[in-house]
Amino acid sequence: MSWVAWRQQRLLLLSVLGVVVVAAGVMTYFRLDANAYLATNCGGQADCSGPAMDGFRDRYSGYTMFLRLAMLALPALVGMFAGGPLFARDFEQRTHVLSLTQSVGRTRWWATKLLVGGVPVVVMMLALGLVAIWAAEPMNVIQGVRLRTPSFETQGLVIGAYTLFGLTVGASAGLLFRSTLAAMALSVVLYVVALVAVGAQREHYLPPETVTTAVIPQGTTPYGPGSSGRASSDENIPEDSWRLAENYFDQHGNQVTMPMRCLFGEVVAADCPQLTGPITEVTSYHPGIRFWAFQSIESGIFAVLGAVVLALGWWRLRRRVL
């Protein structure tokens, strides 16, 4: 059975391999190019300043934008093309009747096709995601915080997990609807929906770190006219952190609401909390070191979703093949 599955998916597997190799090659080229630029113009510093850094940004911002688009689209496209036709084309050309009237049971048929047609694709995309991390290192200064959209979604383990999800949706939709077109369309639609829905929950993966970033003295507006302009002290927050929110507490430790005009207004209005006493500003954030933890958690979520979708397809296959 595995030879048949390989022969059926051969063209697609080789195409994915080609795309992955080309993408990895492009990324490697730009990493080497960026490192060469930094070595020449910044003495090897990844975060030099001034015109050299402006030149660096100009040189690579286009590439970075294109790369993000490509890496967002690639798991969707690969999942769609690898998963959608996997079973649906068999149903359309009725070759499932050929395969299932030999000495192969339907569960083995299903599992073998998924293993041979799916696992190599996911592994290749996983590898591409890891190459993307390595290749993006010199560009991190212009990529922004890696924990945040869209840096987070365009590199790392999640590339493999997104592909896995799109592929399983396409495969199971093919078992349910028996149409390649419908399976591929559903694969992309659910990929986008899942990406947005799961992404909205990302900040809750782990409880955020907190640090006191300012104390607002009683009766002052920190950013009002005449004030120093920089009340918060951010030194305690690593630069690659994902800052979530500033929260304000009164001297008794109760959280208070801080309207914008109380921070930026000319006068301290009657409803501003700092009128009654000093207010402490606490900033919550995810440190950049959590990148791998977050990547693992998000990949795990997509893997579980994929498993649910697969189980649905398997249940359908058990019940009906004609």
Partner: peptide, 16 residues
């Protein structure tokens, strides 16, 4: 799988 003693040729003769 189908019974080893049984061979089947479907109406549309499906082949890859």
């Amino acid at each position: 799988g189908t019974h080893p003693k049984l061979g089947f040729l479907a109406q549309d003769k499906p082949l890859f």
